[in-house]
Computed example of a mutant assay.
Amino acid sequence: MEQYFKILNWDNLQTAILPISLCAPGFLIMLLRSQFITGRIPNIASASMEYVIITSLYYSLTVPTFIYVGEYNPLTLFLLVFLGPIIVGLVFGVIYQKGFMKYVYNFTHIHPIHHPAPTAWDYLFGSTRKGCWIIVTLKSSEPIFGYFGTESFASSDLEKRDIYIEKVLDDKWNVIGTDDYQRGIWIHEDEILSVEIIK
């Protein structure tokens, strides 16, 4: 038991806290932001530098406020390292999903090349509000008409692009079945040729 206490001395704790404090805010910001953007966040190993850069930007904007206030206690440290990044990540995610940055880009005539959504699939279903008509054309050239509502789902996995449509319609957009019995359909990614959204 004494060996464990020797391992958990202050110097070792400081060594463990340093990398956490360098990456935790950036990781939390990207994690919370990713909840509003389809597509998985990259793993820690490949995105560690991005987390450090985001953390550095976050600290450069927030630490001066804490220095100015002059309050250093467990509550303020918790706010700085954990709660603050969670709030920032949520705000960035909502800003993206609501399309606020599009208005800023259009107003300033700035068109960034890099987009937070990694693929067109992520962009389409990340910005599509539930409650629209959809046509999925299969590789056999057969179109599937449907209603993409709150019970529908489009994959957010970068390696699996399947889709579930809660209501299958005929080619005149009439529901197939009755209110008590409606047809939904799951479509495997290998069968999808194109997806058309009608808002």
Rank of each mutant, 00 (worst) to 15 (best):
E2T: 08
Q3A: 12
W10L: 15
D11V: 07
I17V: 14
L18Q: 10
L18G: 00
P19F: 11
L22M: 15
C23I: 14
A24N: 06
I29H: 07
T38N: 05
R40W: 06
N43L: 13
A45V: 14
S48Q: 10
V52C: 11
I54D: 02
I54R: 01
Y58V: 12
T62I: 15
I67M: 11
V69S: 04
V69N: 05
N73I: 08
L79H: 01
L79Y: 04
G84M: 07
G89I: 03
G89A: 02
F92V: 01
V94T: 05
V94Q: 06
Y96S: 04
K98A: 13
K102F: 12
Y103E: 00
F107Q: 04
T108N: 06
P112F: 05
P112V: 05
P112I: 06
T119S: 14
A120C: 04
D122T: 05
D122C: 13
T128S: 13
R129L: 14
W133Q: 14
I135A: 01
I135R: 08
V136E: 05
T137C: 04
K139S: 02
S140T: 15
E142S: 07
Y147E: 12
E151I: 05
S152E: 05
A154L: 08
S155H: 08
S155L: 13
E159W: 07
K160P: 00
D162E: 12
I163W: 02
K167P: 00
V168W: 05
D170S: 08
D171P: 01
N174V: 07
V175P: 00
V175M: 10
G177T: 02
G177F: 11
D179P: 01
Q182G: 00
R183F: 04
G184A: 02
I185Q: 10
K199D: 12
K199Y: 00
